[in-house]
């Protein structure tokens, strides 16, 4: 099986500990690594309700942490010689992931295995690897 291009999908800054597995996988398969951080609209609304904070304040914080996660992954990938491309989007995860799979001819999807990512396993048109 060949994975020329894989996409690592993150929806939470705390997901970043899975980056090492993703980088190692890309190194092994000589894959290009697209890293996509999605700011999920529904997650912001849920957090705003729970914390009584403004949605916009939470969104800014998550975006800042999202970019930091992306650049930390890039920095780690750089050491192993893995090619990376960083992306950050707002919206619904399944829709955005589908758009990326189609636009960049992605061969496999890497996600953190947790309840919220079930929808990505179900809806993906390419193999999904849970890390």
């Amino acid at each position: 099986m060949k994975f020329k291009k894989v996409i690592l999908v993150l929806t939470d800054p705390s997901d970043q500990h899975i980056d090492e597995s993703a980088i190692q996988l890309c190194k092994r398969f000589k894959s290009k690594l697209f890293v996509l951080f999605i700011i999920e609209t529904s997650r912001i609304s849920r957090l705003a309700r729970l914390t009584h904070k403004k949605s916009e304040t939470l969104r800014k914080k998550i975006e800042d942490e999202g970019w930091q996660s992306l650049y930390l992954i890039e920095d780690a990938a750089d050491k192993t010689g893995v090619w990376t491309s960083l992306h950050l989007e707002d919206g619904i995860a399944t829709t955005i992931v589908k758009k990326y799979i189609d636009a960049y001819s992605i061969d496999a999807l890497l996600v953190k295995r947790k309840d919220e990512t079930k929808k990505l396993f179900v809806s993906s048109t390419v193999p999904v690897i849970g890390l």
Binding site: E63, D64, W67, Y71
Partner: peptide, 17 residues
């Protein structure tokens, strides 16, 4: 100065979006 560097990249990326 990794953390400062990552923070600067993140801030700039957010600004330029």
């Amino acid at each position: 100065k990794k953390s400062e560097y990552i923070m600067a990249l993140a801030k700039l990326s957010r600004l330029l979006r």
